[in-house]
Amino acid sequence: MADDKHVLTVNIVTPDGLVYNHHATMVVVRSTDGDIGIMANHEPIVAPLQIGEVRVRRVDKPGHEDRIAVNGGFMENKDSVTSIVADSAERARDIDLTRAEAARERAERRIEAAKKEKNTDDLLRAQVALQRAMNRINVKKSI
Rank of each mutant, 00 (worst) to 15 (best):
M1E: 09
M1S: 12
M1Q: 03
K5M: 14
H6N: 07
H6R: 04
V7R: 03
V7Q: 02
L8C: 03
T9A: 03
I12V: 15
I12K: 06
I12Q: 07
V13N: 10
T14N: 12
P15A: 08
P15V: 02
L18F: 07
V19F: 10
V19E: 15
A24N: 05
T25D: 03
T25E: 06
M26Y: 02
V27S: 04
R30L: 15
R30H: 15
T32M: 08
G34A: 09
I36A: 03
I36N: 03
G37V: 04
I38E: 05
A40I: 11
P44H: 07
I45Q: 14
A47H: 08
Q50C: 11
Q50N: 13
Q50H: 12
Q50Y: 10
G52L: 07
G52S: 06
V54Q: 05
V54E: 10
K61W: 14
K61I: 09
P62R: 03
H64M: 08
E65T: 09
D66A: 02
R67Y: 04
N71Q: 08
N71K: 01
E76V: 14
D79I: 02
D79A: 13
S80L: 05
S80Y: 01
T82W: 06
T82I: 01
S83I: 05
I84V: 14
D87P: 00
S88F: 00
A89V: 09
R91G: 06
I95T: 03
T98C: 00
T98Q: 11
A100C: 08
A100W: 06
E101W: 04
A102K: 10
A103P: 14
R104Q: 05
E105L: 15
R106G: 09
R106I: 12
R110N: 15
I111C: 10
A113M: 04
K115S: 05
K115P: 03
K115Y: 05
K116T: 11
K116N: 14
E117Q: 13
N119D: 14
N119Q: 05
T120H: 09
R125K: 13
Q127P: 00
A129I: 04
A133P: 10
R136H: 13
V139N: 04
K140W: 13
S142I: 00
I143N: 10
